[in-house]
Computed example of a mutant assay.
Amino acid sequence: MIVQNMHDALSDVLGAIDARALFSVRFAASGPWSVAFPAPSYLKFNAVRRGAAWIIEDGAAPRRVEAGDCLVVSGRSFTLCSDPKVPSVPASKVFANAGLDVTIGDGSDFVLLGGSVNLDTVDGSLLTDALPPLVVIKSDDAGPIGWLLEQLDREWNGTAPGSRVACNDLLRLTFIYVLRAYLAQDRAQHPGWLAGLADNRLAPALRAIHADPAHPWTVETLARLVGQSRSTFAERFKVTVGASPMDYLVRWRMRIAAARLRRGDEPLPRIAQSLGYASDSAFAAAFRRVLMESPARYRSIHRASGAGAR
């Protein structure tokens, strides 16, 4: 069986969780400085444009970041500083009523462009859980990211019409390239679908599932697709992705269904059929097993709470 690459898993997930990159701040500093950031409720995405600094995760050793490096932070507090010995100031004080351009001292030593990646409030964990709390992509591994950041600088410093929108779009594209650079590294120590995509012996199976989630996939057909025995494939998939192939398939189908239930008015039978379920009852049983609610109640709850707006 040949699966055409009409979809790819990363694009599918970013679409499902409605990932939106928003340019938020330019931070410049000089002299001794240290800013303590609380654990973000979304992904923080930053690019170092000048100089160097230290980033300290809560409970971890300091890491040096330099011009050209990109940082993705999620779910954990951190401190950014010129020297780990400098006492930190809460970010709430540094950025209070400061707008889009914040400067400590004359700002000549260090410049950071910062943004956020806002995610679906329900399904955003699909990405955050697949990433470690801190991802640092060094400039040597950045590929075309350097060019994108140069364009981001130009848009930020220029006065062309639409520059704010251009900054957001460039930041989103840069974020995708950062995820690609992350995938190019060996990340098996952090199980998840991103680790599966980074594994050439598993990626074809994940791409096949995302290209056609309604297909009646079995462990055997997926194993044949990647040229492995059933047992070898199943074990490697479980260890790397953190779920069995069939569990991943069902959970991905339910992610798709849940997003459509929150955001639209499609009849349940149509959603069930489009995801490969011959009966509404089989779809409802799978949905309850994964989401702990019936599809109808799930739609009602999330529509009432306003989650369907995203």
Rank of each mutant, 00 (worst) to 15 (best):
P132V: 12
P133I: 03
V136P: 00
V136A: 06
I137E: 02
K138A: 06
S139T: 05
D140A: 13
D140G: 01
D141Y: 04
D141K: 08
P144C: 05
G146T: 15
W147C: 00
W147N: 06
L148T: 11
L149R: 11
L149D: 12
L149A: 04
E150R: 12
E150S: 06
L152V: 09
N157D: 05
G158Y: 04
T159G: 09
A160Q: 10
P161H: 09
G162P: 11
G162V: 11
S163L: 10
S163K: 15
R164P: 01
R164A: 08
R164M: 07
V165S: 12
V165Q: 13
C167N: 09
C167D: 04
N168V: 04
D169Q: 09
D169Y: 00
R180G: 06
Y182W: 11
Y182A: 05
Q185H: 14
A188C: 09
A188M: 05
Q189G: 12
Q189T: 12
Q189M: 09
H190T: 15
W193P: 01
A195Y: 04
L197F: 06
D199N: 15
N200V: 14
A203H: 02
P204E: 01
L206E: 02
R207H: 15
A208F: 11
A208D: 08
A211V: 04
A211L: 02
D212I: 04
P213W: 07
P213R: 05
A214I: 11
A214M: 01
A214L: 09
W217G: 06
T218K: 03
T218M: 07
V219P: 00
E220N: 10
E220H: 08
T221G: 06
T221K: 02
L225A: 08
V226P: 02
V226I: 08
G227E: 13
G227R: 14
R230S: 14
E235S: 14
E235G: 06
R236Q: 15
R236W: 02
F237M: 10
F237D: 08
V239A: 15
T240M: 04
V241E: 04
S244T: 15
S244D: 11
P245S: 00
P245A: 00
P245Q: 00
L249P: 08
V250H: 07
V250N: 10
I256C: 11
R262F: 05
R263L: 01
